[in-house]
Design a protein around this nucleic acid. Structure first.
Lengths: 207, 207
DNA sequence: TGTATAATTAAATCACGATTTGATTATTTT
DNA sequence: AAAATAATCAAATCGTGATTTAATTATACA
């Protein structure tokens, strides 16, 4: 029979996960070190054994981990050369959203706590570069679809921000066990943005 | 010649505007009372003359003011009975986004600082009710369009959240003087979501 | 087994920032 | 121009919460 989870000492990753949860509930500033510590059955002081760099470093690593993971998921789809631009974008969006619903704590942190990290000049530079790179993934796929006449001509940067804004918000309102599963939401939203790019109907204000 | 701007005493509204700016730059928790005060050439203590209820009340009123204003703008469009559902939605989105670009500080506060206010039970209840009401405006217009066969059948709550997520994000990335003016962004984004609802092309995963 | 190292804790620090207080200065009102 | 009221300020409070410190306990290792 499975042995009792052997209450071994926690590691950095445990703490990052715990911190992400507390950040989601209370925000970075509202999260006391003791709150994070409690989440892993430790004392505030003990956290400094694992993170001598302190609270902000915890946030930095939460965000980096999160962005890494999401980027990796999306990048994998982008690298799939068997997909046409339209199906690629659909899959990118689907994958991205599904990922967010599966990791809402990190998703929320990426939305709400990024500003905090940006106050730190070094972290800022690194982080923004990676976030831009992520945004470029979307820009490229969309541009490809336009070039292939599969999408109507949209302003690519704006469209990307539109998509990513909608994505981000998922991490805020999505609740596990809600009316729809993550897969359904991902399906619905990817349909929405693919339809938005459909070249056939180009509705304009006039007429 | 124009008289020196008569350094009259500031009023509550001045302070709310100033606070919104500081909140945008530094976030609620990062905003010191002295920062807000400096923005209107006052001392931290002086703020308490205008807001004896303190810092949180300032935030509450910033958010309420902001939500009020945006709701009013959108409601006016919704009440225009001369518009068909599709053109009504287009105008709703356009108006909403344009409003956000014209008041980015408040827009950002509505996104980032809402959680803070929610910790306060009374404010929470009031605020959430109004935010839901706002969301309902969108739900209704969209449902009308579906009923009139002007829109394809989407999951209305999800679509609304998709739209609002994209909206919210505008307040984060939009910068005055950027490549596109608020009007152009509003135009582009309203096109996007109207296209997304177009009943003709119903792209699905199975081509 | 005994010694070094890792984890953890409880109990200080220590700084910062919201709020309060007690004047002081402007502006109205009569 | 008094008298009352409004605005403002500089200088205390005062609590909170991150970080530090000095042990204590557990684990690895030789």
């Amino acid at each position: 029979m499975a042995r009792k989870p052997a209450e071994q000492s926690v590691n950095r990753l445990d703490i990052l996960l715990a911190a992400a949860n507390v950040f989601r509930r209370q925000g970075y500033h509202g999260a006391k070190m003791s709150d994070i510590a409690a989440e892993v059955d430790l004392t505030a002081g003990s956290l400094y054994h694992h993170f001598p760099e302190g609270k902000q470093q915890i946030l930095i690593e939460v965000l980096n981990e999160g962005l890494d993971q999401i980027t990796a998921e999306v990048q994998a789809v982008v690298d799939d050369n068997t997909l046409m631009p339209d199906e690629k974008l659909r899959k990118v969006i689907y994958t991205n959203i599904l990922g967010l619903t599966q990791n809402t704590s990190v998703a929320a942190a990426l939305v709400f706590e990024t500003r905090t990290i940006l106050e730190n000049p070094e972290a800022r530079k690194t982080y923004l570069k990676r976030r831009d790179a992520f945004e470029q993934l979307y820009n490229h796929v969309i541009q490809e679809g336009i070039d292939a006449r599969l999408f109507r001509q949209v302003d690519v940067p704006i469209f990307t921000k539109t998509v990513l804004g909608a994505h981000n918000w998922v991490g805020v309102w999505y609740r596990e066990g809600g009316r729809l599963a993550g897969e359904q939401i991902a399906e619905e939203m990817s349909n929405t943005f693919l339809a938005a790019l459909s070249p056939v109907s180009v509705p304009t204000a006039k007429n």
